[in-house]
Design a protein around this nucleic acid. Structure first.
Ligand SMILES: [Zn+2]
Length: 513
DNA sequence: CGACTTTGACCCGCGC
DNA sequence: GCGCGGGTCAAAGTCG
């Protein structure tokens, strides 16, 4: 059991947490201010500011500074106060809207959770919980070692037409150091030997192309699957039916967009470049890297600059590490897995509905990752991809984009950047349930605070995601994190479910700034 | 000398 | 079947 995921929250402990506690700090201050203001500004039309937040003002009276004896001063003071008051009201308003959204989201999540649990009970009772260590993801076929346990997950969307069910097998490789290697490294071989004979049907995934989830994903999947997965289904919307059932599995990828002059982002891992190609439509070449921290580590990443904005570096991660990672790298890994999980969950159910997924995701993310700019999930591309867009960092309003970038999607992830250990993040798993329709666009709050750091968001998100996919836990975590964190920049997540059906693997892409 | 990068060739899936 | 594009392999070169 060494799952990398759980591993310490080392999310790049380099920075401090940037999350702002919305409620704790901001709100409190606001409240205080309110009080003060109220007193003074009696004349104001001031609406009853009710922050839904329950910021109670009464007692506090900040009578402190007031008492100015001079009328003149009083006058000027009053103006100032009024101005402040307005500002505070504005802030309160924003806060309130946030709260409302959170509340809604919470409700929805609860409902979903509930449904999911029920489904699980009914539907799949049997999922084994595989334990997994780190997972590796194999691309399309999972190679199975003898010792692996396989778990099958089936998702059926209850809501959806039943055909959507997918079956996945996850092979949990407990002892597979090798497996991973094999899998990743040689795809080619697989074909040939894919069957070493031993396989029972399992070996070949049921699907022609379905892929077994890699171990890594397994983690995610496993956990999530047990909970979140099954559940994911959304309430029902019809799904577009996708050919998905047939679609081959693909790996989930996580990409990060960030502005960076440097050609590479340091994510705590060691990478070896194994190829470079000129991508069509993009003047800058795309570089392919493989993790060299461990022999068989299947993790790969692609790095390329944005065609439109060469300052934006897009890093896409795929796969999970099969070895322990340094703290700095942990975040990434977690992110990846988390992202994968998200994709999976999201894709599963909704592959069709962006909205829902989107909204849900958006909600969570945004809440959980205040700093991130936006996250996008898309199943459409060749592989399901989550993109974190850190290029807009500061002040962004939360937006949901349903962007479906042709190529992939983006979603804010935690960068490897070094950050301080976040408790939250690591601790709380954050999942996006696929289909929840939370509020569509989250609130946009733009807070004056510049301070955000994009990284924190990312971290948060990734951490959360990565951490455990338990739905419940995730939800709880998400909520808590949301509540706990203040949002600064906005983040948006969008999901575009196009049709890709299943996501076997996970990739994470980062773009550095 | 080992690890990494460079770079053209090769493989493979996909659309026409 | 062919061409295209994405991704990977692996020999050769580079660096410390
Ligand atoms: Zn690795």
């Amino acid at each position: 059991m060494d799952n990398p995921h759980p591993r310490e929250l080392t999310f790049l402990p380099s920075r401090d947490v940037k999350e702002v506690d919305f409620f704790s700090s901001s709100s409190s201050t606001a409240a205080d201010q309110d009080h003060t203001t109220h007193h003074h500004a009696s004349s104001f039309p001031h609406h009853p500011v009710n922050t839904g937040l329950n910021l109670t003002c009464e007692t506090t009276g900040i009578s402190t500074s007031k008492g100015s004896p001079n009328a003149d001063n009083t006058e000027s003071e009053r103006k100032m106060v009024e101005g402040e008051l307005r500002r505070l009201q504005e802030e309160n308003r924003k806060l309130r809207s946030m709260v409302d959204q959170i509340a809604k989201s919470y409700s929805q999540l609860q409902a979903q959770l509930f449904m999911a649990l029920q489904k699980q009970k009914l539907t799949h009772h049997h999922q084994n919980t595989g334990v997994k260590s780190n997972g590796m993801i194999s691309g399309e076929k999972a190679v199975e070692g003898d010792g692996r346990a396989k778990v099958e997950m089936k998702n059926n969307d209850a809501s959806v037409s039943g055909d959507e069910k997918r079956e996945r097998e996850v092979s949990a490789s407990n002892n597979n150091g090798n497996n991973a290697e094999e899998v990743m490294s040689k795809k080619h071989d697989e074909n040939d030997d894919d069957n070493e004979g031993d396989e029972d049907g399992l070996t070949k995934l049921h699907l022609g192309k379905q892929v077994a989830a890699s171990a890594t994903e397994e983690d995610v999947l496993e956990r999530s699957s047990s909970q979140s997965w099954g559940s994911c289904k959304t309430p029902n919307l019809e799904e577009p039916k996708l050919p998905s059932s047939d679609l081959p599995f693909r790996k989930a990828r996580v990409s990060v967009r960030a502005r960076s002059e440097a050609p590479l982002i340091s994510d705590g891992c060691q990478w070896r470049k194994y190829g470079q190609k000129m991508a069509k439509g993009n003047p800058s070449p795309r570089a392919y890297y493989r993790c060299t921290m461990a022999a068989g580590c299947p993790v790969r990443k692609q790095v390329q600059r944005c065609a439109e904005d060469s300052t934006v570096l897009i890093t896409t991660y795929e796969g999970n590490h099969n070895h322990p990672l340094p703290p700095a790298a942990t975040a990434m890994a977690n992110t990846t897995s988390a992202a994968a999980a998200m994709l999976l969950s999201g894709s599963t159910s909704s592959s069709s509905k962006e909205t829902l997924a989107t909204s849900a995701a958006g909600g969570y993310f945004s809440s959980s990752m205040p700093y991130t700019s936006m996250a996008t999930l898309s199943a459409s591309a060749p592989f399901p991809t989550i993109t974190l867009d850190l290029t807009h960092n500061h002040h962004n309003a939360l937006q949901l984009h349903r962007v479906v970038p042709p190529p992939g999607v983006t979603f804010p992830l935690p960068l490897h950047a070094v950050t301080p250990p976040h408790q939250l993040i690591a601790g709380h798993p954050f999942l996006i349930s696929n289909h929840q329709k939370l509020m569509p666009p989250l609130v946009h709050r733009q807070q004056p605070q510049p301070s955000n750091n994009s990284p924190s968001m990312v971290e948060t998100v990734s951490a959360a995601i990565a951490s455990d996919p338990n739905f419940t836990a995730a939800v709880a975590a998400a909520l808590s994190s949301i509540i706990g964190s203040s949002s600064n920049g906005g983040s948006a997540i969008s999901v575009s479910p196009n049709g890709s059906p299943q996501l076997p693997q996970s990739c994470t892409t980062y773009s550095t700034n």
